[in-house]
Design a protein around this nucleic acid. Sequence first.
DNA 1: AGTACATATCTTCCTAGGAAGCAATATCCC
DNA 2: GGGATATTGCTTCCTAGGAAGATATGTACT
Lengths: 163, 163
Amino acid sequence: MRDSVDDILDQWARERPDLDATPIGVIGRMSRLARALEARLEPVYAEHGLEPGWHDLLATLRRQGPPFKLRPTDLTHSSMLTSSGTTKRLDKLEAAGLIAREPDPNDRRGTLIALTDKGRKLVDDVTGPHLANEARLLEPLSQAEREQLAGLLRKLNLGLPPL
Amino acid sequence: MRDSVDDILDQWARERPDLDATPIGVIGRMSRLARALEARLEPVYAEHGLEPGWHDLLATLRRQGPPFKLRPTDLTHSSMLTSSGTTKRLDKLEAAGLIAREPDPNDRRGTLIALTDKGRKLVDDVTGPHLANEARLLEPLSQAEREQLAGLLRKLNLGLPPL
DNA sequence: AGTACATATCTTCCTAGGAAGCAATATCCC
DNA sequence: GGGATATTGCTTCCTAGGAAGATATGTACT
């Protein structure tokens, strides 16, 4: 079976036979696939009233375990946002009553972000359906193929050159 | 070797042992990796004065072969943008003299987007270095692993449920 | 031919997030 | 201890792109 990236590779082979376009078979597919997958995660978020990106942040707090607190800096790193992006996303989540800001007792510059009870309940409600949805998206692959894919992605990730 | 997603999976196993979080090992890694890879493509674009996303559009025109023309609708699909996003991106590329809009002789509603000579030269200059950069990013994987990864991504892509 | 519906592109309006910069506090190093 | 430097979180400003809608044209069906 061929996909649209195979067509792209054929076009390059015809138009620029001097170039080796095969990296597109990996990187091009991954860019497109990542976006296509994310688009298929959003409906489950939306069913629970979550904007895209909110679950990622709430889940990061949730999986720390009690007391479900992190500094904004930590959330910035885990969410791959900039600090200004994190501030804005936290503003929304705070306005929705899902997180609360409190002063960091160990650093008077800092703030701690805490899951509220409401946020905790919400993330606990949505994470099950969310993971079931992700599992559904992976159904085209066998269990062995999923593990193989995860392993290749890990290897590539660990070998990434610094930016 | 473990990566940061392995830590995330451990956290979920501890906090929510009732859930199967393993899909994150594929989908979470892919989302993060796709963004990390894209960030590492941008410096090469920037060296040639291209904004992110411009190369994708110019390359789509280039690999069609002569006369290097497509309708905006086609570009919308290939770039995974909406039509309004495409219009704006085309505005920028037109202002930069890299593409030209001309009336579609076969459809009076339509427009054809054509690579200008300048656009053609630019995309021909940048695609080589761009592909070399992509190849560099894939160096952590052996040739066999790259093919395996491309195959798994293709399979997953082809099996994706409709949105 | 004419009516209904579909499609192509662009426009308007809006928002998420980035870049740069700021004030407060912390850390380092002599 | 005290001055230089780093870090924290936020603010301001800006832009890329989405959603919804408008307009013009094409297509299908009677």
